[in-house]
Nucleic acid binder design. Structure first.
Lengths: 338, 338
DNA sequence: ATGAAAGCGCTAACAG
DNA sequence: CTGTTAGCGCTTTCAT
């Protein structure tokens, strides 16, 4: 590897006939430098193509100007046709770009990579760590926070971590309530649900919302569990139909699963929404492209990413007005499927 | 920001009653350390929760153990429902994970971010830079390569950069030829194409393939240009139909555009493949889910990512057997649309 | 306003 | 096999 050696501060200083300290000042935009000298230095920087060595800089400043986003999922899951993660990344990315911070994206779907992430953060590679899509009571956010590393989560953490870590989440319960209300208002009475994984807050809260709403309406519940993927939606729908061939509606905790459910329903010859009404959750693109287009609970995924990133930037800059918890609204979007 | 100070080599050395050098040896797995001492050091490391400071380490080793993947696109493009980029990322990510290197993903859709990327690489933030989805004659790969930074590209570069930079690409021409042959064999004679953007090798090569194949068959060509997005596919298809309402086949340079083309064709009441046969390119998931399922030229996108990552690892390790150019095969996958 | 000097935490010769 | 020593390139007091 022929790494041509890059010019150092020292080289620039010699060329401009000043000290290293002065060059450093100019490079870092200090105002206390005489204009003539500043220009000379800038010219030397230009001529030599000088770029500060980040490792050296970080060593003394204790700052890297980069921030990690941890997705406790495999890469194949993050980059599947489920557009949830991409939307989070987009939001985060937008905010960090504006703040001139580098995003370091880390998938941590296995125990090994989970470890790697921990070491990575502890090695001071990044100034802060953001988590999205947390499963179970992941101790990592808390661990890092206790070590003094700024941590922010998307999705309410399931551990007392919440005391240490600011987070952003959406109003799952409100969204589900609106969905079930809509089903009731359109005359449905045998309303099943395909719930999300019960080791994730989004899965738990949406199921709780369904239960509450059905209890209030005095209707019996019918629950099948999926893992937010299309495949699991297909399977869960079949299970539900086995249990009650006469069900007339299903609330599905994610659009991907709802997409699977539509397929499973069509395969049995049922017409949607005539025989069975279907409502999803997310409002990712696929819900508009599905057949029929999906009525769904919109959650502002991109905004979650943006909000989380802003919280992180606030924490890093030691701003005191960083809200410990932000809950964004959800909204029912009615399309043909219900 | 309360960054509790982390223990240093020095602290571990004191606790274990040895020198810093010895601790460094143990931490880096040197075999020339007495077992007793090694254990003592390991214990001290454990007790103090020591993790090496990456900035300090990089400063002296000139290595960061991370590698950048540059996507010269906006984040919204990379993380849209086009699963091309995700597939590349997945491939890259798999290989780097195995090599215990950290992937740093950078979107560079604007001139500003293009600059940022350049500075980032030159600051020694990463050990190497991989490019995917290059537009036009981007000078950045060449620039970085000349500076001694290892560079690898996915997609044949359009500049003489190729002399400096290993790359991986797929057999565009072979794939297109197979597609057109299939159309001819099934009796189509008025074969149009929706080409990709003509500032990208994938766009150029696939159009060239179409032209060659039609010329050989002695048929007239009909070309509309898109930019690989679904929207542009819809528009291009309408243009083609305006030009020749009687066309009986269209080869589309990407599945996303083909998806759009299907929609545009259906809107005119045409039946597929009865009235018009459609063949796409990519074989991303959407081609199986579309209506009807899409006949398409499969390119091994994940493998491109993997191959590129392996080339990069080879270059970094100064291995001499790194191939300057790898061309992966493509393959026609016949489904209902043609 | 500028320079001198002291490290940041680590690795890698080189001695011993 | 282990310790001593000399930096890696930069920022930041502290003098001047």
């Amino acid at each position: 590897m022929v790494t041509r050696e890059r010019p150092t501060l020292e080289a620039v200083a010699r060329r401009a006939g000043v000290s290293r300290a002065t060059v450093s000042r100019v490079v870092n935009g200090s105002t206390t430098v005489a204009v003539a000298i500043r220009d000379a230095v800038k010219q030397a920087v230009e001529e030599l193509g000088y770029v500060p060595n980040q490792a050296a800089r970080s060593l003394v400043t204790q700052r890297t100007e980069s921030i990690a986003l941890i997705l406790p999922e495999t890469a194949s899951r993050v980059f599947s046709d489920d557009l949830f993660f991409p939307a989070v990344i987009r939001g985060v990315s937008t905010e960090l770009e504006a703040a001139d911070k580098q995003l370091v994206l880390m998938m941590a779907g296995s125990a090994a990579s989970h470890d790697r992430v921990e070491r990575y953060a502890m090695a001071g590679h990044v100034d802060g760590v953001m988590f999205a899509s947390m499963h179970g009571a992941d101790p990592l956010p808390g661990t890092l926070a206790r070590l003094g590393i700024p941590v922010v989560c998307s999705g309410r953490p399931m551990t007392p971590t919440e005391l240490l870590v600011p987070y952003v989440d959406v109003d799952h319960l409100g969204g589900v309530a609106a969905a079930v209300r809509h089903l009731l208002a359109t005359g449905r009475r045998r309303i099943a649900t395909i719930a999300g994984p019960q080791d994730m807050v989004a899965g738990i809260d949406r199921l709780a919302g369904y239960r509450t709403a059905l209890a209030e309406a005095g209707l019996p519940e019918q629950v099948a569990i999926g893992d937010f993927t299309r495949e699991s939606g297909i399977r869960a729908m079949r299970v539900l139909l086995d249990g009650d061939p006469g069900l007339d509606a299903v609330f599905v905790a994610s659009d991907m699963m709802a997409h699977g459910a539509l397929q499973a329903l069509r395969e049995t010859g049922r017409r949607i929404p005539h025989d069975v009404a279907v409502i999803g959750f997310d409002d990712v693109e696929i819900s508009r492209l599905s057949d029929p287009p999906l009525t769904t609970v919109r959650q502002p995924i991109v905004d979650m990413g943006r909000t989380m990133a802003r919280q992180m930037l606030g924490v890093i800059d030691d701003r005191l007005d960083v809200p410990a918890a932000v809950v964004l609204p959800t909204e029912l979007v009615v399309r043909a499927s219900a």
